[in-house]
Computed example of a mutant assay.
Amino acid sequence: MYVLQVPGGRERAAVELLQKLMGDAVGECFVPLCEVMRRKHGEWHREELRLFPGYVFLTTSDVEGIAQRLHEMPFFVRIVGGHDERYVPLSHDEVAWLQALTNVETHTVEFSEGVIEGDEVKVWKGPLKGQEAKIVKIDRHKRLAWIEIKMFGRTKVVKVGLEIVSKS
């Protein structure tokens, strides 16, 4: 699995163009999302946000062919990790983490629920269950959690949906 950097906000357009221009050379091509709760007109609604803004994930057996044809795209696109004419795929651990946290069919980190007991966060529902050690910050009012992960060869902090239903 490889990662492409694209202009922010153009991720979905990039996915559609890659599938159209590259055809069978592209296996799976997607933008990972996360479910969050947003308040609109006094009511909470679920929304999907990009987990990694500015990045598109794809599987291919012909990364060199894809790299050579990226200039056909109408906007800037580059393969992340490409240096010295080599393109480095995501590591096994990065792919495993992504697959463990996201719904495999929709590529979405679904909303999680949990409680705070003393100084400890305990998630009892959702993909963050068992991942409590990776949580670095929680905003109970906005129903968000920031988790620290290793992705693209560096440590990143991404926000995901987490509702804390009680605190004791």
Score class of each variant (00 low, 15 high):
residue 82 G to L: 05
residue 151 M to E: 06
residue 4 L to Y: 03
residue 10 R to I: 00
residue 149 I to E: 08
residue 56 V to M: 01
residue 76 F to N: 11
residue 5 Q to T: 05
residue 129 K to G: 01
residue 38 R to Q: 08
residue 107 H to A: 03
residue 133 A to W: 12
residue 41 H to Q: 13
residue 79 I to N: 13
residue 94 E to I: 07
residue 73 M to T: 03
residue 82 G to R: 15
residue 64 E to V: 04
residue 52 F to P: 01
residue 78 R to W: 05
residue 18 L to K: 09
residue 75 F to G: 01
residue 84 D to A: 11
residue 114 G to M: 02
residue 76 F to W: 04
residue 152 F to T: 05
residue 134 K to L: 12
residue 28 E to M: 06
residue 62 D to H: 15
residue 92 H to W: 11
residue 7 P to G: 10
residue 151 M to H: 07
residue 161 G to C: 07
residue 24 D to I: 03
residue 6 V to T: 04
residue 41 H to C: 04
residue 76 F to C: 06
residue 79 I to M: 05
residue 26 V to S: 14
residue 66 I to D: 12
residue 14 A to R: 11
residue 141 H to M: 13
residue 87 Y to S: 08
residue 103 N to V: 02
residue 37 M to Y: 12
residue 112 S to T: 08
residue 148 E to Y: 06
residue 92 H to K: 10
residue 12 R to Q: 12
residue 30 F to R: 00
residue 21 L to Q: 13
residue 41 H to R: 13
residue 93 D to P: 03
residue 114 G to Y: 06
residue 78 R to F: 04
residue 27 G to T: 11
residue 79 I to V: 03
residue 2 Y to Q: 11
residue 27 G to R: 14
residue 165 V to H: 07
residue 9 G to E: 00
residue 56 V to Y: 08
residue 47 E to S: 05
residue 90 L to F: 06
residue 130 G to T: 09
residue 108 T to H: 14
residue 155 T to K: 09
residue 16 E to V: 01
residue 114 G to C: 00
residue 70 L to C: 06
residue 131 Q to L: 10
residue 109 V to Q: 12
residue 98 L to Y: 15
residue 71 H to C: 07
residue 163 E to R: 14
residue 120 E to T: 09
residue 69 R to G: 01
residue 142 K to E: 02
residue 129 K to T: 07
residue 106 T to L: 10
residue 167 K to V: 03
residue 115 V to K: 12
residue 140 R to D: 08
residue 48 E to H: 10
residue 34 C to V: 11
residue 149 I to D: 05
residue 154 R to G: 07
residue 140 R to A: 03
residue 153 G to V: 04
residue 42 G to M: 07
residue 87 Y to T: 03
residue 17 L to R: 12
residue 96 A to G: 05
residue 163 E to I: 00
residue 67 A to Y: 11
residue 134 K to V: 04
residue 151 M to P: 02
residue 63 V to L: 04
residue 95 V to M: 09
residue 163 E to P: 02
residue 128 L to H: 13
residue 20 K to A: 08
residue 117 E to R: 15
residue 109 V to Y: 13
residue 161 G to V: 08
residue 159 K to F: 09
residue 156 K to N: 07
residue 51 L to N: 12
residue 125 K to H: 15
residue 140 R to T: 11
residue 119 D to R: 15
residue 119 D to L: 06
residue 138 I to F: 13
residue 124 W to L: 00
residue 9 G to P: 03
residue 40 K to W: 10
residue 59 T to R: 06
residue 7 P to N: 01
residue 111 F to H: 05
residue 94 E to N: 01
residue 28 E to Q: 10
residue 103 N to S: 09
residue 2 Y to G: 06
residue 30 F to P: 03
residue 16 E to F: 08
residue 116 I to P: 07
residue 6 V to Y: 00
